[in-house]
Computed example of a mutant assay.
Amino acid sequence: MTSSTPADLPINLAPTVSVIVPVYNGERDLPELTRRLLAQTYPAERLEVLWVDNGSCDRTPTLLQSAVTAATAQGRQMQALTYCGVQSSYAARNHGIRVATGEILAFTDADCYPAETWLEQLVQPFTDPAVGLVAGEVEAFPGGNWLERYADRKQTLSQKSTLAHPFCPYGQTANLAVRATIFKQVGLFRPHLTSGGDADFCWRAQREGGWQLAFSEQAIVQHHHRDTLEGLRRQWYRYGCSNRYLHELHGIDLTRELTQKERRYRLGRWLLKELPLAAVSWAKGQGAAIDLLITPLDLVCFEARTRGQRQARLPEAAHQIEGL
Rank of each mutant, 00 (worst) to 15 (best):
G196M: 03
V68A: 12
C112R: 05
R266N: 09
A151I: 02
V17R: 03
A7I: 12
G308Q: 11
P31R: 00
A91N: 08
S56P: 14
S195V: 12
G85N: 04
Q74D: 02
I220V: 15
V19Q: 08
V49E: 06
T162Y: 11
T5L: 13
R35A: 14
E120W: 00
R269A: 12
G268F: 06
R310F: 06
A91D: 11
L176E: 05
A174M: 13
H224D: 10
R233Q: 14
Y170A: 09
R93P: 10
E208A: 15
F126V: 04
W211A: 14
K160R: 14
Y90A: 05
P191N: 00
P142K: 05
T72Y: 05
L105V: 13
D8C: 07
W146Y: 03
V21G: 04
Q40Y: 01
A135N: 04
Y90C: 00
A135K: 04
L157Q: 10
C168D: 12
V134K: 01
A205M: 13
R190Q: 05
S281I: 00
H247L: 02
R190E: 05
V86L: 10
S161W: 15
E139C: 10
I11N: 02
T16Y: 10
L293I: 08
Y170H: 15
P129Y: 00
G144L: 01
T69F: 04
R305H: 09
T2H: 11
L314I: 03
D200T: 03
G251C: 05
E230S: 12
H250F: 14
F141V: 01
Q260P: 04
G102C: 07
Q235P: 03
R190M: 01
Q222R: 15
R244Y: 03
D29L: 06
L63H: 09
G196T: 02
R207G: 01
I11F: 08
R234G: 04
P31F: 01
L50M: 07
R28K: 14
T259D: 07
S4E: 15
A67Y: 06
F215W: 15
H192I: 02
R233N: 06
L188A: 07
H223T: 02
L324R: 07
R305C: 10
L81V: 05
P166D: 09
H250Y: 11
E274W: 03
Y83Q: 03
M78P: 08
L63N: 10
P276D: 14
W51M: 10
I220W: 08
F167C: 10
Q309L: 02
E103S: 14
K284Q: 15
R244C: 07
F141G: 00
A214C: 09
L50K: 08
W282A: 14
G143R: 02
H250K: 13
N175A: 11
E48T: 12
T101E: 13
Q218T: 15
F189N: 03
L258N: 07
Q172G: 13
C84W: 01
H247Y: 06
H165T: 02
D152Q: 14
R305M: 14
V186Q: 06
A283R: 14
Q185N: 12
G55M: 01
S66L: 11
A304Q: 12
S281Y: 01
Q79K: 13
Y239S: 07
L271E: 04
I290Q: 11
A151W: 01
T194V: 09
R36A: 11
E103K: 08
G144A: 04
L277N: 07
